[in-house]
Each structure stands twice: as C-alpha cells, then as structure tokens.
Nucleic acid binder design. Structure first.
Lengths: 228, 228
DNA sequence: CGTGCCGCTTGATCCTGATCAAGCCGGGAA
DNA sequence: TTCCCGGCTTGATCAGGATCAAGCGGCACG
C-alpha cells in the first residue's frame, strides 16, 4: 500500500495538482479517498450526481454511453496517471455524462469537487492549467466529430494507428494495441467485424504487419500517405 | 453606428464580460475592434494563428470543417450575442480549429486574446464562468458524438426539431427553421436529400406539418415519444 | 417577359458498413 | 485430456443513407 508520500509524488505529476502549494495540498488531502475497483465493476452511471472527480492510480477505466438499442460507444479509456470527470466539477447541476466501468482491476483516487473548487480560487496558475486542459479536450472533440462525420471507417482506423506511434518516430516501428480489439472498435464507432476486415486489408496491402496484438509498421510515411 | 455605451451594454449581457469590473472593462476596450462582414466572406481558415476571439453583434457565422473530398460539416452557427473561438485562447500554439465564414451580412467584435487573458488573472469569478462555459461546451460535444454514432439520421432530425422548441412549451407549437435546409443538413451530418425525405416522412406520419420554413408540431409529446 | 440560377424535392441506383451466422483458436476448469 | 467459453475472423446478406439524375418553382437579371 503506498503511503502518503508516494501518493503526493504521484499527484505532483498530474496537471491538476502540479501547481499546488504545500498548504493547498494539505488542505485538499482530507477530501481525497483511494478506492479499489475490479474489472467489470461499475463506478458510476450516466446521470449520477457528481460529487467527486477521479485520478486513476492503477488499472484502467472505460467511459462510455449506450444507445436505446444497447450498443455502446467508448468515449475515453483513462489509465494510470490520467484523470476523468474533472470538467463535470463546474456544472451547476453536476451529473456524470457517461458510464464508468473498470476495465482491469485497479485503484483510483476520488477527489471531492467542492474542496478542489474552493482551492482553485487561490491559485490562478491552476485555473490556467485547468482551462488549458479543457481547451485541449474541446479541440480533441472537434477532431473526433470531424473524423466521425467526414471520414469513413478505414480512415478512422488508420488515424487511430498513427496516433499510437510515438511522436518523432520515423521509418519502421512496432507497437502493441493498448486494449482488446473489440474495445478499440467501440472507440472508433465500428463493429469488431469491420475493424478486423480493415486491419486484414491493410495487412494485405503491406501497410502493416499484424500478429495478435503487435502491429509492425514497415513505413510510417507510407501509412500516413494512405490517409488520402 | 452604435456608440461605446451601447457596445458596453451588449457586452455586459455576455458571460465572458458580465463579471468584469469597470476598470477591467476599460483596460480591455483598446484591445477590441468592431469589424463588418458580408455573407459568404471568409473570416479565418482552419489552422490560422488565433490572436483574437469574437462576439457576433449582428448577422450570423458558420463554423465548419472540410473533408479531403470536399464535403463540409457545420460545427456551429453562432448568431448575434454569441461568441466563438474563445476557447482557442488557452492553447500553447493557438490555431483556429475550424473555418469561419459569414452567413448573413453582419458585424462582429474581435477581442485580442492576450488582453483578455491578462485580465482573467485578476478575476476568479470570470475564470469560473469561463470554465463553466467550457464545461458546457464539452458536455454538448459528448452529446453530439453520441448522437452521431449511436443514433440514425431520423433520430438526429427529431432531436434537432425538439431542441428548437422553447423550453416549457407543450401541446401544439409552430416554429420557423432558423436557416436554409441545406445548412441544417450539413449540421446534422446528412445530405439535403435525406433531410428532405425524413421531414416528408414525419409529415406523412402526422408528427409535423411542414410548409416551407415553418414547422407546426401538433403534439410535442408525440414527437418526443417517437424518439424511441 | 424570357432565361438562368438556386434551393428543394423526388426517384433510381449504388456502396459502405451493420447484421447474422459459422468456424477457429487459446486458455481455464473439471 | 476434454470441454467450454470468449475473442477474433471470415463469409453471406441486408439496409441506411449517399450519390446520381431529373424536374419544379421562385427570384434576380437582362
């Protein structure tokens, strides 16, 4: 079990806490709780009243929505070190806009929104980083909406693969898919069958080499080029 | 031409300026410029460096993206009293994420981002309203992504119509479509043909009565109910 | 008063990706 | 070892909506 010092070092690495003074940190501490979760466990449902936001310490979570017919769209899959639901904090009637479910066993830190909000008041720097982060989120949403409406599924898969390659990489690279293929499909808003077929096609075309969960990209530029 | 006093009253009605002190307002004034625009006029392109954000005073604007094949998706259509591009302000390398083009002749106010940003530093209240607004935007994006991926085009049209009816209205209501049908189609990510067919179908089913740009809804609850 | 243009509608056809169905394979339990 | 079971693949079919094409009516302009 990590002690307070470990926890603090973890928090310091996160944008929501990096700019806090020791005082502010101490004031916040009593309003945070670690909580273990299991794979498959529901953490909260869409529409639940939100009193906390969360930081994933171990494991991973899926945030998703469900249509009337029961199909689910994964919005994000935050993993260790990432936070979620922090933007809900500022709503008048704060309700979670998604379902949250454990993906692998793990542990998260729940921070009471009210406490954090009080603290924001004292630190403009923190305000600024929070706003910058929200902006980034908004930007990512524009991009996602564009790619969902303006592009076909092949494009979305290609785009997803290219986002997986580390910045600055060139030429050949091998990478591992970060989750089950059916989850990736749900994120890209396609069926598992379609994802499978597209990956197969890319394989045939020599753009990727696929073995289980490892994808080798012989020529990143070629893959990039095949986007249009 | 409106004078400074009129302009100030206009600004006061907007969330980005409502919480400002007179001092802050005065400091900001030299960094704002009114600018007329014509229907069809390009205001900025996606990728342009952003030094300002905008408040529409008269007329309307369309914010959109274009796919490789040239089809466009309208993201928003801000009109008088609404602002746009304000969230770009917080990005490290601030570039507009959309194209902006005049829809009807009008006039807008450009506010230099740097000046506003400096001013935010002094007012936590303003920070808070800005953050609340961003949150709302994020929330709207989740909703849009859901409706684009989890629902079919008929649902999206129904949903659009229902958003047009004023809150609290019940029973029968008549309303006017706020823009050309082809623009509405571009916003809903369908073709004009499809929109036309869906409206026709709703007409046949007695859920709406359509004459040119006026839509009469005999029973709002019935329309609501036909969502699922 | 034609003429052409534009926005909208309507019909016919096509294509992408979903759905349905079957089989494969690897891992865990009896 | 055998038997499931769940995740993935592969094939066949289906359907929602895009595309292509034609026609209509209003309106601006010569």
């Amino acid at each position: 079990m990590p002690n307070d010092r470990d926890l603090m070092l973890e928090l310091r690495r996160h944008y929501l806490f990096a700019a806090l003074s020791q005082q502010q940190y101490d004031a916040l501490a009593p309003h945070t709780h670690t909580r273990a979760f299991a794979a498959g466990q529901m953490l909260f449902a869409q529409g639940d009243i939100a009193q906390s936001f969360f930081l994933v310490r171990r494991g991973s979570i899926k945030l998703y929505r469900i249509s009337a017919e029961g199909q689910e769209k994964i919005m994000r899959m935050p993993r260790a070190g990432q936070s979620f639901a922090e933007s809900v904090m500022f709503m008048k009637e704060p309700r979670y806009p998604v379902y949250a479910q454990g993906l692998e066993d793990g542990e998260l830190l729940a921070i009471e929104s009210a406490a954090y909000l009080d603290m924001l008041r004292e630190s403009f720097d923190t305000c600024r980083t929070v706003m910058a982060q929200m902006t980034q989120r908004i930007q990512a949403h524009w991009d996602e909406i564009e790619s969902l409406t303006l592009q076909n599924s092949r494009y979305r898969v290609l785009h997803y693969l290219l986002k997986l390659v580390p910045a600055g990489a060139a030429g050949t690279i091998a990478l591992k898919l970060p989750s089950r293929k059916s989850l990736i499909a749900a994120q890209l808003a396609v069926t598992p069958e379609t994802l499978s077929r597209i990956l197969h096609a890319l394989n045939q075309e020599g753009l990727i080499e696929l073995h289980d969960y490892t994808v080798r990209i012989p020529d990143i530029d070629a893959l990039q080029g095949s986007l249009h």
